[in-house]
Simulated scan of single mutants.
Amino acid sequence: MPHFVYIMASRPAGALYTGRTHDLRNRVVAHQAGLSEHTAKYNIRKLVWFEEHEVFETSLRRERSIKRWRRDWKLALVTEHNPNWQDLTYLIPS
């Protein structure tokens, strides 16, 4: 079963949320519906970056690593892979 590490944003270079899940589509829907207190408070609704991992432990280490990163490193990661900060929900694998 794949595991995903992801970053959501309120707008380009706005408020960010980094998370991890095995069901990315449902997790993004939950964020967009305002079911997460933090993302609802800061209007974080756009999936702007994600990566897939085959092993739970690898995804856990990656998420924890990114959460410790400085904000400008996270912004650079998103901008490198998604320069226009588009919502990438349509790219989530089925």
Rank of each mutant, 00 (worst) to 15 (best):
R68P: 08
S59Y: 03
M1E: 15
K67G: 04
L88K: 01
A15G: 09
M8V: 12
R61T: 14
L16F: 09
H38G: 03
D23H: 11
T58Q: 14
L16C: 08
M1R: 14
L24T: 01
E51Q: 13
R27P: 01
H31N: 05
Y42F: 15
V28K: 00
R68V: 04
L16Q: 00
L60S: 12
I44W: 03
K67N: 06
E52S: 13
A13L: 15
R62T: 07
S65A: 14
E37H: 12
R25P: 07
D23G: 10
Y42V: 05
A13T: 13
R20M: 14
E54H: 15
P93G: 04
E37M: 08
L35K: 15
G14R: 12
E54I: 11
T18V: 05
Q86P: 08
S10R: 00
R45G: 08
G14T: 07
F50K: 06
H3R: 06
Y6V: 03
E57V: 11
H3V: 02
Y90A: 15
S65R: 13
R68E: 05
N26P: 07
H53T: 03
Q32A: 02
R11F: 05
V29C: 13
L16Y: 03
K46S: 09
A76F: 06
R62H: 04
W85F: 05
E52L: 13
I66W: 01
L24M: 03
P93R: 04
A30T: 10
M1W: 13
P2Y: 10
T89S: 15
N84F: 13
K74M: 11
R45V: 07
I66T: 00
E51C: 10
A30G: 11
I66C: 01
P12Q: 04
R61W: 15
K46Y: 06
T18Y: 00
Y42P: 03
R20T: 10
R70K: 15
H38Y: 07
I92E: 06
E52K: 15
P12Y: 03
S94T: 11
A40I: 00
T79N: 13
A33T: 09
S65C: 12
W49A: 05
V48S: 00
A15I: 10
T39W: 01
T21A: 03
L75T: 10
T89D: 12
S59A: 11
L60T: 13
L88D: 00
R62L: 07
H53C: 03
D72W: 01
T21N: 05
G14N: 10
R61N: 15
T79V: 09
L16K: 01
W85M: 06
Q32R: 01
K41R: 04
P83M: 10
I7E: 02
N82E: 03
F50W: 02
A76H: 05
L16S: 05
T18F: 02
N82Y: 08
R11Y: 06
E52T: 14
A30Q: 14
P93N: 05
P83N: 09
I44E: 02
F50R: 05
D87S: 07
H31M: 07
A15V: 09
L91E: 13
H22I: 06
L91F: 11
H53Q: 01
R71A: 02
L60E: 12
E80G: 11
S65V: 08
A40S: 04
V48Y: 01
L47V: 07
Y90P: 06
R64Y: 10
T58H: 11
L77F: 01
T18W: 00
L88M: 02
G19P: 00
